[in-house]
Design a protein around this nucleic acid. Structure first.
Lengths: 151, 151
DNA sequence: TAAAATTATATCGCAAACGATATATTTCAT
DNA sequence: ATGAAATATATCGTTTGCGATATAATTTTA
């Protein structure tokens, strides 16, 4: 009935879309106790790596536009995880820093990656198989950044 | 500063999340002329494969809950792409079928997959490398379905 | 140096996702 | 056959994601 290339099972993107959503779902049991969502967890990862960052830094790092990141950070500020202060050198910028609460959360979060790995390992056999696809995903991401910039 | 395992570059999920979003972005130039979004495109793929489906069928196929699919289908019905009729045997069910407009869209859409492939190929070198990760993604997805059902 | 272009962030509106809850219909148990 | 459990779908509320637009500060250009 349908064209072969239009079948759902032949769509790489559908797999990425589904894998991404289900993986975020798998984080739920670990992030709920911390009171943060998966995108907020990503922001925390970025800030735990480098304490002081502008909105631009964060949005570049996460490949998200500021119209997504700004409200995200506003909610995180309201939750007491971060502070947003005006830049001194460039007053357009906002400097984002962790609060004590945000910094302390790192200790509670440090086991999350291995918990996730263990849980997936239970159902999939080998983690090596997953690490093997990382370089391809990175290439794809780099390629798509360019593709999307052209339009 | 940060724990090694908490670094963003060590997160598989972040790659999936980013790859999925950027891929959806790459569909934009092709889906905009059709007036549909990427999730709506997925629903069309499902319906082009099997004309008559219940909400359950569609949501199982796309791994989405009905609370996502129902509003999606309502918008698609308003756009004149599908019809939703009460099931005759089981009145709880809704049978979703394509309108003429929805069916005709298949012709306009049939080149989209190869356009996407070509575009990615431009920036990444080989499509084979991408097809190689498909079995791993499928295993991951199956594993995550189970993981998420346990909680 | 004043106007124009650029840059950094914010706001708005809409479409997804998804947890929680509600409603209607069917099936099951007694 | 009737009340209870299960099933299919819908609704509500919140957070994301993102295009479009606005605002404020900086840099560039004439």
């Amino acid at each position: 009935m349908a064209y072969e290339q239009l079948k759902l099972d032949n769509q790489l993107c559908f797999r990425l879309y589904t894998a991404a959503r289900l993986t975020m779902g798998a984080y739920h049991p670990y992030l709920d106790p911390l009171g943060i969502t998966y995108p907020q967890y990503l922001v925390m990862l970025v800030l735990w790596e480098h304490e002081k960052q502008t909105i631009m830094d964060i949005s570049h790092r996460l490949q998200l536009d500021t119209n997504t990141v700004t409200p995200l950070l506003q909610r995180m500020e309201k939750a007491g995880l971060i502070k947003r202060t005006k830049g001194k050198e460039d007053a357009r910028q906002r400097i984002v820093t962790l609060t004590d609460k945000g910094l302390a959360m790192q200790e509670q979060a440090k086991h999350i990656p291995e918990c996730l790995s263990a849980e997936i390992l239970n159902h999939i056999g080998s983690i090596e198989e997953l690490t093997k696809i990382v370089p391809t995903l990175d290439k794809l991401i780099e390629g798509l950044k360019q593709t999307n910039n052209e339009h």
